[in-house]
Nucleic acid binder design. Structure first.
Length: 564
RNA sequence: GUCCCGGUAGCUCAGCGGACAGAGCAGCAGCCUUCUAAGCUGUUGGUCGGGGGUUCGAAUCCCUCCCGGGACGCCA
């Protein structure tokens, strides 16, 4: 079972101390006790402002009718002295901040904690085994994965990993859109290619799939089935072609994802959802609840009655349910499977769908808050500053496979997550490939490899890593050492923030900063041969850095090389 | 026209109610008889798109305008 880190425990102790101080200060401030602001401790944004800080005094000042500094002084005065043995002193600073300074040796204990917990350092129990479903990629099985899918794959997988590390029970899920109009177009295109292969002059449907890949797929189909389907009914022909092609495309998608280090727990077929009757059942349920109406021969969902800007069609005039109807049934199904939280990653082009789906969940009696949709902005590939052009209509686009072949898995994974999902992403292929300091992935991996090299050197000299219980970390007095120790101590909180905000880019940034601190330390100070006591302490610091780097990279799906 | 995302240093982006706005790259100036110089150090550079407002306090919240991207289908 995961437990909070030393720093997290101190934070909680100080937070409780602040609450007691607040209660004790109450008479002097004469505040209404019911609507107090939440007491929160933050990481100071600058070295020198202590180890924790709070702006509580600012929040209280106006209601107390006293200047923030005065409120802060009162809180400091009433702060219980037994709140935490690690607390050294409290200072009122700036316009009314309360800065908490810990006893310097807390960092030494924190460092020892990293080494003792090893791979479990940073693991926590925020999720309390709550079941979370993370649905991502979910690309049509009609082609290969493109850059948008790849970004979704990297983000979704890292979000899932972070949540799992924080104690959620996570299921990674891929929704296969193997039904509907798109699949019909796909089938029609395959059929045309099939007949073309036998010399018939059949044009591709105008809104069909023009990619050369279908010609190849049909070739393989023919080598298995020959011309047998030239003589069957079109329905039978299309059915055979499409099921063959989907199987093939899905296998290719799975293979790409595997190479990308992404593995799903559940592959959920839309087709099967229809076949199971769940879609029809859900439509009936919406009808029963009076959330539908008929117009122009179609059945509509009254989304506008639940806060969405527009209504949407559930059943077309031709009697077939829409993708929207299936998606509602799908999310209902997830809830029925016991998921308390559903996270979907969608491309920006689907954003308009969010309010309608939430409205539908509400109409079915669920709390729409149980669904979080992350909207990802577009990826723009650049090479040396110039945009890489592609045309999806002509079936020409850069695939995940192309990307992996060019820049490799590690760089690709890092580049997709190092910016927030909200930001349009400029993916510079040249930079991702560069084996130099400009490339953040190499920079981080290099820090890890350097440490590995250090321990190889040590072994060659007949030494071995010192046992953490025995090392005296008070030898570490240099600013580069203290800064590195502090950063390591922050890891659990960084993980927590990245997980709860569904923001892996925070972890990516953290790892970069951590590497930078390590390189500075390494460059400035000798480790092996530093002298008795100091050498062991520095080796411990290096080992702890390596552990955190490895763990952090693992959460992002990036390898931690032993040598480069 | 409506909706969504963005507009922060020359470039790519963090920060998203609090202490003088940060990083990398690019530019400039330095550091290799020493554990990987795939590294490190110093330094230049900003009316946080414009204008209003809310607040003790705004890059951060609200309104409005401008610019870039996306979406507005009985496609998915």
């Amino acid at each position: 079972m995961a437990q909070a880190s030393l720093r997290q425990e101190i934070r909680e102790a100080l937070r409780q101390g602040l609450e007691r101080a607040l209660a004790a200060t109450q008479p002097a401030l004469s505040l209404p006790g019911t609507s107090l602001p939440p007491v929160a401790l933050e990481v100071p944004r600058e070295e020198g402002f202590g180890d924790f800080t709070t702006n509580l005094a600012f929040k209280l000042a106006s209601r107390a009718g006293k200047p923030p500094r005065e409120v802060a002084a009162l809180l400091a005065e009433h702060f219980p002295s037994d709140a935490s043995p690690y607390l050294d002193r409290i200072e009122v600073a700036g316009a009314g901040y309360l800065n908490f300074y810990l006893k310097p040796w807390w960092l030494e204990e924190a460092l020892r904690e990293v080494l003792l917990k090893g791979e479990d350092y940073g693991r926590q129990d925020l999720g309390r085994r709550r079941k979370v479903n993370v649905e991502f990629v979910s690309a049509n099985p009609t082609g290969l994965l493109h850059m948008g899918n790849a970004r979704g794959a990297a983000l979704g997988d890292s979000i899932a990993a972070l949540l799992a590390f924080c104690g959620f029970e996570v299921t990674r899920e891929y929704y296969i859109n193997d039904a509907g109009y798109q699949i019909e177009r796909f089938a029609a295109s395959l059929e045309a290619r099939y007949r073309q292969a036998f010399g018939e002059d059949v044009p591709l449907p105008p809104d069909g799939y023009h990619g050369q890949d279908l010609v190849e797929t049909v070739k393989r189909f023919i080598s298995e089935h020959g011309d047998r389907y030239l003589h069957t009914s079109p329905e039978e022909r299309r059915e055979a072609l499409v099921s063959f092609a989907i199987k093939e495309k899905l296998a290719a998608i799975k293979e790409s994802l595997e190479k990308f280090g992404v593995r799903f727990d559940v592959w959920f077929s839309e087709q099967e959802l229809h076949a199971s009757g769940k879609v029809a059942e859900t439509i009936e349920e919406l009808k029963r609840r009076g959330a539908t109406y008929e117009k122009e021969g179609a059945l509509w969902f009254r989304a506008s009655a639940y806060g969405a800007p527009k209504d949407d069609v559930l059943v077309r005039a031709n009697g077939l349910p829409t993708y929207f109807a299936a998606d509602i049934a799908y999310h209902r199904n997830k809830l029925e499977r016991g998921f308390e939280w559903m996270i979907d990653l969608w491309g920006a082009d689907h954003h308009g769908h969010v309010p309608r789906l939430k409205a539908a969940l509400q109409a079915l009696g669920y709390n729409p808050e149980c669904l979080t949709v992350i909207i990802m902005q577009l990826v723009r590939l650049t090479r040396g500053g110039e945009a890489v052009r592609m045309s999806k209509r002509a079936g020409e686009y850069v695939t995940l496979n192309d990307l992996l072949a060019e820049v490799g898995k590690d760089a690709a994974r890092y580049f997709f997550v190092w910016r927030s999902a909200d930001a349009h992403l400029d993916f510079d292929l040249e930079l991702a490939k560069a084996q130099s300091m400009e490339n953040p992935v190499y920079y981080i991996q290099y820090a890890h490899a350097r440490i590995a090299s250090l321990f190889r050197q040590l072994a060659e000299r007949g030494g071995s890593p010192p046992p953490p219980e025995k090392v005296d970390f008070s030898f570490l007095r240099e600013p580069e050492e203290r800064r590195l120790m502090y950063k390591l101590a922050l890891f659990p909180e960084e993980v927590e923030a990245a997980a709860l905000n569904l923001a892996p880019h925070r972890l990516a940034t953290y790892l970069y900063d951590l590497s930078s601190l390590f390189h500075s330390f390494y460059n400035e100070h000798r480790i092996i041969g530093a002298g008795s006591g100091l050498e062991e302490a520095r080796l411990g610091l290096a080992a702890a850095t390596q552990l955190v780097l490895r763990q952090g990279l693992k959460l992002l799906g990036i390898s931690a090389p032993e040598r480069m």
